[in-house]
Structure formats: C-alpha cells, structure tokens
Design a binder for these strands. Structure first.
Lengths: 211, 211
DNA sequence: GTAAATTCGGATCGATCAATCTAGAAGTTT
DNA sequence: AAACTTCTAGATTGATCGATCCGAATTTAC
C-alpha cells in the first residue's frame, strides 16, 4: 500500500493459500491463530497488520478460494454453453474439485458458516460464505430459466423447484465427500439428477456431456 | 444407577433437551460448558457426574435428537410402505421437521461433524453423527433396491447413483434451510427429484404422495 | 544523513476454555 | 443412626484463545 517504510517481506498469495487450506480443512472456529501463524510462517503482528483480525483473514481466504478452486462453479454462468451443459459442468466440475486429493475434500463455501453465531461476533463469517452460496443459487436459477428459454425444459416447469433441487444436491456433495463417498458414485448421481432435465425428449445426452 | 444415596434431582430428558437445542443451533465447538450450564440449570459437578465430559453430553444429546426430531427419517425403513412412498415421506418429513420454527432450523446430524478435527480430540463427535448419516444412507439404498424389486424402478438402474442423489439432496436441505429457503420451495424440489423415480411409467403420483 | 514510516519477532495481555476439586448441605437406603 | 450418593456453589487448574504491545530492523522520503 504505502510506498514509504519497510516493504512487506511475505507473498500475500502464499499466505492466503496456507490460511485457505486450514480454514477449508477445519472450518473457521476450529482454526486457531497459532495454527495460522505456523502455517503461514508469519508473526501475529504481521497477520494482524495485514488482515486486521482473524475474521478479516478468513474473508480474504474465502475470496482467495472463490477465485481459485471455488471458481469451478463459475461455469454455470457461461452463456456460451447450452443450459444443460452449464449445469452438468457445474456438478461434475464441483465433484472433481472436491474429491481432488491434493487439497482438503469438500467445498469451503458449503461447509462453513452453516451454524449460528451466538453473539453477532462471528456473523461476518457466516455472511461471507452465505453470500457466495446465494450467488451460486442465483446463477443456477438463471441457467434453469435459460433452459426453459432454449426449449430444453418445459414451459410450465417450476424453475424455483428445479433450482432448489440442483443447489441442494450440490451442497450435499461436500458432506458426502467428507464421509468418504467416491467421486465415481457422485458423478453417476449427478448424471441421474440431470436425467430429469430432459423428461420427455432427449435432445442432449446427459451422460456424454462431461468434459 | 445406584439405589442408595441421594437420588438425582434433575430430569435427564429435560437436560438432554436443552443441550440438544444448543448443539443443534450452534454446533459442538461453538457451544461452551458455561452455556450448557445455564441452559440446563445444572452445575459443572452435576453435568460431569452425569455425562462424563462435553463429548459425552454431545453423544447423549445426539441420541436424544435421533430418537426425537431426527426420527422423521426412520420412515424410509418402513417396509409396509411402497418404496416410493418411503422415500417421499423421508424427504417431505425431513423438510417439515427442519423448517419447524419451534426449534433450530436444519438437521443436527447433517450440520455437525462435517469438518476435520485437528488432533483426534474431537473425532468422537464426528463419528457419532457420521454413523447416523451412514445409517440414513444405508436405509435409502435399501429403499431404492426395494423400488427395483417392486418394479417401480428399472432393473438396470444404478442403485448407488440414485442413493447418492437422494442422500445428497437430503443433506443439502439443512444448509438451504439455514440460508432461508422456504419450506414450500424445498417440497417442490423434493417432488421434482422424485419425478425421476418413475422415469417412464407413472404408477404412483409423486406430488400426491405426501401425508 | 537524518527522520518518518512500516514490518518484523517475540513477549504478553485479559478472557475464556473444559475440566477438576472442595466443602458442606440434602436426600435415600440399610 | 450410619453409610452412601447427589446436590449447590464456587474456587481453581492448566491450557488456549484472539488480540495487542514493544523494541529492533529495514526501507523510503526529504
């Protein structure tokens, strides 16, 4: 920020990477500043100077996640794809990401901030991830509406219901992955879910739509 | 336990009720013994004398939940129902329970123990709820297999995939409820999901199967 | 060269955590 | 009455929590 004074000696991206992995694996509350200090290699002074608070660091780590591994869900907003393809890639891409053994399993956004804070102290934590969940939901709904517009889905379909069904399954993936459900089973389940995208006519194959 | 000595002055059921509500609302880690003391009206000595530890109290509270509000999922194992009815009542009953405003929203079993404990200290917490999730999954799979046996589902269906799809949606309900999704939307989504139970023939109406 | 600005490691803050223990009063059985 | 257990109420344990402060180190601005 400032051009005067001693320059920062650490790479903010690497620090956010380390913090993201901890929050991803353990959640916000179970992750202590001592662990964050050890994982990032920074002192308390540096961490608080750069991020203000534990909550501030979490917020930045979530943003880092959303623009990193979490960006797999962005594909659902890609209007160059058919709506069916967009949703199929959303689900299959999320499953691939969440079962990738090179980082913690499941989705940071889906697993964090689902419990109530007692005193409005950690409400910011909940808001950050809930906002991203709301974004996913809005994008899924838009894809469903596009599906109706493209003629992939019947005109009289309940778009909110289909949206809730897809988003509900997406959110449930994380818990299943944490419980050890294999990627292959989840992919097959996603295909089964997508099969009702085209209830009568089958203009687009649902099992061949994966990348 | 003992027949001699001063008898217990508190009602264990009421104590477990209060503890269950706290864990349900806030989760295990965010709930402190001080809150549990205040909510139950018991002293530390009484709580530790009766339940051994915070983890022991949580375990008993989860059992209390499973045999109480959480028992709505037991219907999926009811073999006097048609398999389709069993799954339909599982989903719609869970939605009704989880959106009931007289207690915390969502499902205690679905929301707890989804994150990794750092040192094998709280692994018991995870195991208790994960075991119940595994039971739900097993029961859903049995209902799906019965559905094939009854001729409600095609012989060549992937029962694991359908199971994972249904259980995934069930688990995702909790997060959606916490995020404010209305019961009516979730019911409609469940109906949409159940629509693929009968892909071609429609011997059982999916939207009229609710209680 | 000097002063201002910023970051660093490390010590430390008060608060809170789960858990244990004490002491005496109260209740129940034998 | 004696033995036994649970009760209330609180003190206390050692550990850990998030957050702050301090002095030394480092860099830029003037």
């Amino acid at each position: 920020m400032s051009s005067v004074g001693r320059p920062r000696a650490f790479d903010e991206g690497l620090v956010l990477d380390a913090a993201m992995l901890l929050f991803w694996r353990q959640g916000y509350e179970a992750t202590s500043m001592a662990q964050l200090r050890e994982a990032t290699g920074l002192s308390s002074a540096s961490l608080y100077g750069a991020f203000g608070s534990k909550e501030g660091l979490f917020t930045r780590a979530v943003e880092h996640y959303v623009s990193g591994p979490g960006s797999v869900t962005d594909v659902v907003a890609d209007e160059s794809l058919t709506p069916h393809q967009a949703v199929a890639r959303l689900l299959h891409g999320s499953i691939d990401m969440q079962t990738d053994p090179t980082h913690p399993r499941g989705c940071l956004v889906a697993l964090s901030g689902t419990l109530e804070a007692q005193d409005g102290h950690d409400t910011g934590v909940r808001e950050v991830v809930a906002a991203r969940r709301a974004t996913d939901r809005t994008r899924i709904r838009a894809a469903v509406v596009r599906g109706v517009g493209w003629g992939e889905l019947p005109e009289d379909i309940d778009t909110n219901a289909v949206t809730t069904m897809i988003h509900g399954f997406l959110l449930g993936i994380s818990t299943q992955v944490r419980d050890g459900v294999a990627a292959q089973e989840l992919h097959a389940a996603a295909d089964a879910l997508l099969r009702l995208w085209t209830p009568a006519d089958s203009t687009a194959g649902s099992s061949t739509a994966r990348s």
